[in-house]
Each structure stands twice: as structure tokens, then as C-alpha cells.
Write a protein that binds this DNA or RNA. Structure first.
Length: 274
DNA sequence: TCCTTATGTACAA
DNA sequence: TGTACCTAAGGAC
């Protein structure tokens, strides 16, 4: 589900299924995208791109002038399948289908036809994305190092860094032993450098595996001689959604709190300030 | 069958 | 800070 790794994976999967073959048949059974779908049917999908949690599908010429802009929000889901596609349910906002494959989009916050300048404006308001080759981590640090906001809030701010969500935020702060309430301006350049590169590695692995795993090999249950565990969101993590359970490293109870209307998770012992 | 929850964001006050 | 929006799954009845 949708943090940045999911969106980059979707960009790859849309391209694999539709960019090489014939132009897809485009429909919007749910109706909200019906006009645009009619315009796009028969136009080849030529490029796909992700920046943070934003997905762009480029239709038409090699340098598309028009893009489908998709943001999954909290609930959005994408499902791929082989043809014949089943009859769409009435919540399918966007379906692409060709001779071999179909893909359904449900529940997105955004699904809109935009121009190239409008797409550029979205890139301009997003921070660097650890999964993009053009990303400059110094741009993120400039904002962090000047901010009195907590590092937990800053990591979720897409203008600061694009693609990190609630899981990667909680997990990367744990992996670096940083108190989520520390003000951004107290983060050293060395700490930021380590966090950025760790996010790059973790999120690349997330794209490969289509899930979030953050537990280091030496901390797996097998390595620590403990019974295997299953986290109910599909990956192996240290603190995310583990409130009141014991920390895999120190055994202390994982804490949770509301921060800007999102659930924050951390270990008060492993993430104590020096 | 209803209620809660969720890996997100935008806008109003 | 609160609320609205989009959907589906799981748990309490």
C-alpha cells in the first residue's frame, strides 16, 4: 500500500503491462473520470513516472503533453490482472485493458488529466525523492536544519522529502536511534546523511519486494533465537503498529502517540537522546 | 449490520 | 486543529 516505494513500483508495472503493447482501452466504470477515459482510449501509453507518492501516466507522443495524474491517498488501490478482465465493480475509477492485461484503480484521492506545465508544478512543490536519480538530499537538509518542527513531522512533509510515509518514518527513526520529537534543526549533517542513504536502500528494496521490510538481518527472530513473527501489514518492522509490544532490541514497551493526526510509534529506550 | 481503522492530503477556521 | 474525501477489511454485535 501507498508509500513512495508502492508508487514507483506501480510506474514500473503500468509500463510493463501497457507501454510496449497496443494502446489500451480506457474506461471509468465509477464515472468520475469517464470524459477523460473516452479521450484516452486508443492513445498509446508512452511513459510512466513517479515522484514521491504521485504517479504520472503519459499518453501520446514520445514527449507526452498530457498526463494522467494519480494519487492514491490513504485508501487508493491498484490491481493488475490478465485478460479477460472481470466485469468491473462500480468503484473502479480507471481501468486500462489491452489484449493481454488489465489494471483497475480504486479509491484514489486524485485521478485527473493534466498538462505538462501542471505536472511540472507538482514536481516543483515536492521535495527530493530518495527513489529518483535527480534527488538532492541537501535540499531536504536545508529545510530540516532551519526548522523547529520535530523530525517526525518533517519526514512526513512532502515538501521536505517526497515519498516517506508513516511506516518508513517510524522505522528509519528507530534504525538511527533518533527521538521522533527532536527538532529538525538539532539534526546533524552526518545524521541526515545516514538517514537519507538508509531510506534510499530501504525504499529500493521496497520497490523490489513490493512491501516494507526494515529489520536488519542480525535482528530477525531467527538470528536472535526467538519464535518467528508476522506483522499484519505484510513486512518485518521494528516499531510500526507495535504499540505496547516489546522492542525487538531492548524489550521495552513500544510507545504510540498522535502527531499531526497520524499514529507515531517509537521505542523510548532505543530512541532516547544522548 | 454497524463501527473502526488505515501506509494521505487539502482546506477552513 | 478539525474535518472532509475516497474504499475495503476486520471485529464487535
Amino acid at each position: 500500500m501507498p508509500e513512495g516505494h508502492t508508487i514507483h513500483r506501480l510506474a514500473e508495472d503500468y509500463a510493463t503491462a501497457f507501454a510496449a503493447g497496443p494502446a489500451p482501452y480506457v474506461t471509468s466504470p465509477q464515472g468520475k473520470f469517464a470524459d477523460a477515459a473516452a479521450l484516452l482510449t486508443g492513445v498509446p501509453l508512452t511513459r510512466t513516472e513517479a515522484h514521491g507518492k504521485h504517479l504520472f501516466l503519459g499518453f501520446g507522443a514520445a514527449e507526452p503533453a498530457e498526463w494522467v495524474h494519480i494519487h492514491l491517498g490513504l485508501f487508493g488501490k491498484v490491481t493488475f490482472g490478465k485478460t479477460p478482465a472481470p466485469p468491473p465493480t462500480d468503484t473502479v475509477r480507471l481501468r486500462l485493458a489491452n489484449d493481454t492485461a488489465y489494471v483497475d484503480l480504486r479509491g484514489p484521492t486524485t485521478c485527473a488529466l493534466i498538462t505538462d506545465p501542471e505536472k511540472q508544478a507538482i514536481h516543483d512543490r515536492l521535495g527530493p525523492d530518495p527513489l529518483r536519480p535527480d534527488a538532492d538530499p541537501r535540499a531536504a537538509y536545508r529545510r530540516i536544519s532551519r526548522s523547529r518542527s520535530t523530525i517526525a513531522a518533517l519526514l512526513m512533509d512532502q515538501k521536505v522529502i517526497a515519498g516517506v510515509g508513516n511506516v518508513y518514518r517510524a522505522e528509519v527513526l528507530f534504525r538511527h536511534g533518533i527521538d521522533p520529537y527532536r527538532p529538525g534543526r538539532d539534526l546533524t549533517p552526518t545524521e541526515w546523511d545516514a538517514i537519507w542513504h538508509d531510506l534510499t536502500d530501504l525504499m529500493r528494496e521496497g520497490v523490489r519486494n513490493n512491501r516494507i521490510d526494515t529489520v536488519r538481518p542480525e535482528h530477525t527472530p531467527e538470528a536472535m533465537g526467538r519464535p518467528p513473527r508476522v506483522d499484519d501489514h505484510g513486512g518485518e518492522v521494528y516499531v510500526y503498529r507495535r504499540a505496547n509490544q516489546s522492542c525487538h532490541l531492548c524489550g521495552d514497551a513500544i510507545r504510540t502517540a498522535d502527531l499531526a493526526a497520524r499514529n507515531l510509534f517509537w521505542c523510548p529506550t532505543c530512541q532516547r537522546e544522548p
